[in-house]
């Protein structure tokens, strides 16, 4: 996937996306027929109150959860139509996911955590993986911590390592599920700046956040309410 910022075709297309959960006899609608488009190089904030469907939307974009109805097309490919193994490979190569609780594998050093997606995607040579992982960790300011286990570094450092892991296979899209939600304000600022750098470098970043101040600093904000798009501000002019 190689995209020009001025490309007129959307990178992510969401059409009539619906997601319902069954909780006992009750059906809960997390997303109600959402449609939206995201263009390459965008830095998008997904905001809304708790339970509005922000994380569910992100899960649909990444294919980690199955939708009830609708379509999600990423670079023209229907996520929901890919079989599980293909979906995993596609995700490894095209998406970088950053979680709120970091989700670093606790028994692997930061270096190995970053190398793992490359190995899973079978990309780069063994030596290249090592060099690249070290470079990515250096890029997020962790050059002195690469042989440490996640439990031995701070939450902010873990989240930076998680961003390095998300970049391991040089994916065009980075999805962040409240990546600053569990960090102090200083660490949150560093992490946000890293995301901004990635956008500047041409990546498409979609970040779920409840931090309105942070969201306001992103060019586009999609606000969800009760599973619907309430507002969509800052979409590119060519949209």
């Amino acid at each position: 996937m190689n995209h020009d910022l001025s490309s007129r075709s959307p990178l992510i297309q969401v059409r009539d996306l619906t997601k319902s959960y069954h909780v006992g006899p009750t059906t809960v609608s997390a997303l109600r027929s959402i449609s939206l488009q995201i263009w390459p190089g965008e830095f998008v904030a997904v905001v809304g109150p708790s339970g509005s469907g922000k994380s569910t939307l992100l899960n649909m974009l990444s294919g980690v959860d199955r939708m009830t109805a609708g379509d999600v097309l990423v670079d023209g490919r229907a996520v929901q139509r890919m079989p599980e193994a293909e979906l995993a490979r596609w995700r490894g190569e095209n998406l970088g996911i950053v979680f709120q609780f970091f989700q670093m594998l606790p028994t692997m050093t930061l270096l190995n955590n970053v190398m793992l997606p490359m190995e899973l995607a079978n990309r780069y040579t063994r030596a290249e993986r090592r060099t690249r992982a070290a470079q990515l960790l250096t890029r997020v300011g962790l050059e002195d911590q690469i042989h440490k286990l996640p439990g031995r570094v701070s939450g902010g450092q873990q989240q930076r390592a998680a961003i390095a892991r998300a970049l391991a296979n040089d994916p065009p899209i980075i999805l962040g599920d409240e990546p600053t939600g569990n960090l102090d304000s200083g660490s949150a600022q560093i992490v946000f700046d890293l995301f901004a750098e990635l956008v500047a470098a041409g990546k498409t970043v979609v970040m779920v956040t409840q931090d309105e101040e942070l969201a306001a600093r992103m060019p586009r904000q999609i606000e969800l309410s009760e599973g619907r798009v309430a507002h969509d501000q800052g979409a590119p002019a060519y949209a």
Binding site: L105, T107, M108, T109, L116, E119, R126
Partner: peptide, 29 residues
């Protein structure tokens, strides 16, 4: 809520074995 555990010296040692597949080193850890 995150992945729990602190890792151990063995994990650090296994992590330095660059010839070992990451998946297998994860299994050992």
């Amino acid at each position: 809520y995150g992945l729990s555990g602190d890792g151990s010296a063995l994990d650090e040692f296994v992590g330095r074995l660059s010839w070992l597949s990451r998946v297998f080193s994860l299994a050992i850890s």
